[in-house]
């Protein structure tokens, strides 16, 4: 247990040491999204159920902050450790693969949570000034659930990709060609109802769609998907990505780049 807590402490200290890159920068991005899409463009968007677009957008941006930062935290931790030679040390000390995966995973969850929480706070301020009331979290338990499950899932994916990647290019290719499209098409900015039926059908195969909508349900109390479906898909996501991360640790290389 001490080994696990030490590695978790190291993971948290690592991202806090480069706080501008790991926390401030994504928070500024979220701030700009809120300002441009939520406040400016959002004023001309009308949703079918009459919900203000800003209320719809804030949970999506929180989920996006969580996903991106959880992924980046674990993947950059593995890659920088590969580069510095730290990862070899991780192999020669008595830490189990599960301890490594969960410590790195929780490190990603905490960073993702911080970004999502600050995005939520900033969003609430915008919400208050634009609509005259703060954005209340409707289901606090479920927001914590989706932060934990979603954060772990994308941290595990980050571990998996970083272990099997042989170059920085391969790592960034995953972010650019897979994670980014799935995030944008997962319902961060638009409701599935506004899409063409074909895209609606395709979106249902996107696991991120269920996480983002789970987030949205937890915060504003409504979403494009039933809560039970979101919970099931997200739990499956954790299990599958944990197995992927574990295989990567067993089969992947700890050697330095």
């Amino acid at each position: 247990m001490i080994a696990f807590l030490t590695l978790l402490e190291r993971e948290i200290k690592r991202f806090l040491k480069v706080i501008i890159q790991t926390l401030i920068s994504p928070i500024i991005s979220s701030f700009l999204y809120l300002l441009v899409f939520g406040v400016s463009l959002g004023a001309s968007v009308t949703l079918k159920n009459g919900m203000p677009y800003l209320s719809f957008l804030i949970p999506g941006l929180m989920a996006m902050g969580l996903i991106n930062n959880a992924f980046q935290n674990s993947s950059s931790s593995v890659v920088t450790s590969k580069f510095s030679g730290d990862l070899e040390d991780m192999r020669v000390v008595p830490i189990t693969n599960s301890q490594i995966i969960f410590a790195m995973g929780l490190g990603g969850v905490i960073r993702g949570f911080l970004v999502a929480a600050v995005t939520g706070l900033v969003g609430t301020v915008f919400h208050y000034y634009k609509l005259g009331e703060p954005l209340y979290v409707q289901h606090p338990f479920w927001i914590l659930f989706f932060i934990l499950v979603g954060g772990l899932t994308f941290s595990f994916i980050g571990i998996f990709i970083a272990f099997i990647a042989r170059t920085f290019d391969q790592l960034s290719a995953f972010s650019t060609f897979i994670l980014l499209p799935l995030t944008y098409l997962g319902g961060v900015f638009v409701s599935i109802e506004t899409l063409h039926p074909t895209w609606q059908a395709i979106s249902k195969f996107n696991p991120l769609f269920y996480l983002i909508n789970g987030f949205r349900y937890a915060i504003i109390g409504s979403s494009d998907v039933q809560l039970g479906t979101s919970i099931f898909v997200c739990l499956m996501g954790v299990v599958v990505t944990y197995i992927m991360a574990r295989i990567a640790l067993v089969k992947g290389s700890f050697s330095r780049w």
């Binding site: 030490t6 402490e9 190291r10 920088t80 510095s84 730290d86 000390v93 008595p94």
Partner: peptide
């Protein structure tokens, strides 16, 4: 174990590195 190539961890101080290393061994 002392590996052949020098580890270049840039994030932490000497003291932090040794504390983390102790923790990995449960100390």
């Amino acid at each position: 174990v002392v590996h052949q190539e020098i580890v270049n961890t840039g994030f932490f101080t000497v003291n932090e590195i040794l504390k983390f290393q102790s923790g990995y061994y449960g100390i």
